[in-house]
Nucleic acid binder design. Structure first.
Length: 121
DNA sequence: GGGCTGACCTACT
DNA sequence: CAGTAGGCCAGCC
C-alpha cells in the first residue's frame, strides 16, 4: 500500500479508480479512515471524494467498503441504521472491536496488522 | 453561474 | 477533553 503520485487533474473515473484500489488493499481485520485512503490514493486533503467514490462504487466490484470509517473511528452512517449495523457486523466478524461505539484506529491499522498477528492487541 | 449538501479532515482555540 | 473554522469536491437543484 504505497502512495501513488498524481497530477491532480485526472478525470473523475480515474480518481475513483485509485480510491477503489486503495480500499481493495485494506487487509481483513483492519480499518482506515477516509483521510488516509485519500492520502494513499494520492489525494491528500480530499477525504470527501472517498465518500463519493464509495457511494458510487459499482456493486460488481465487491469492495470491502466496511473497512472505511471516519477519523474518530466511528461508522459514518446514522447510528442504528441498517447500513451502520451491517458495517459493524462485517467488521466484528473480521475481529475488529468496538469500544463505546468507536474503533481504535491505531490498533486496527494495516500497519499494525502483523504486530497483532504475532503478539495480539 | 451560485448555493447547499454530504459515507470527511486537520488545525486551532 | 469539546467546539469552531476552513478546506475539500462531486452532484443536484
Amino acid at each position: 500500500m504505497a502512495e501513488k503520485p498524481t497530477t491532480g487533474d485526472e478525470p473523475r473515473e480515474d480518481r475513483f479508480e485509485r480510491v477503489w484500489q486503495v480500499i481493495e488493499g485494506i487487509p481483513s481485520g483492519c480499518v482506515l479512515n477516509y483521510g488516509k485512503v485519500a492520502r494513499l490514493a494520492g489525494y491528500p486533503g480530499k477525504a470527501r471524494m472517498v465518500g463519493m467514490a464509495l457511494a458510487s462504487a459499482p456493486k460488481k466490484r465487491q469492495l470491502p467498503w466496511h473497512r472505511v470509517v471516519n477519523a474518530q473511528g466511528r461508522i459514518s452512517f446514522p447510528e442504528g441504521s441498517a447500513k451502520a449495523r451491517a458495517q459493524r457486523k462485517r467488521l466484528e466478524s473480521e475481529g475488529v472491536e468496538f469500544e463505546d461505539g468507536a474503533i481504535d484506529l491505531e490498533r486496527f491499522s494495516p500497519e499494525r496488522a502483523l504486530d497483532r498477528m504475532l503478539w495480539g492487541p
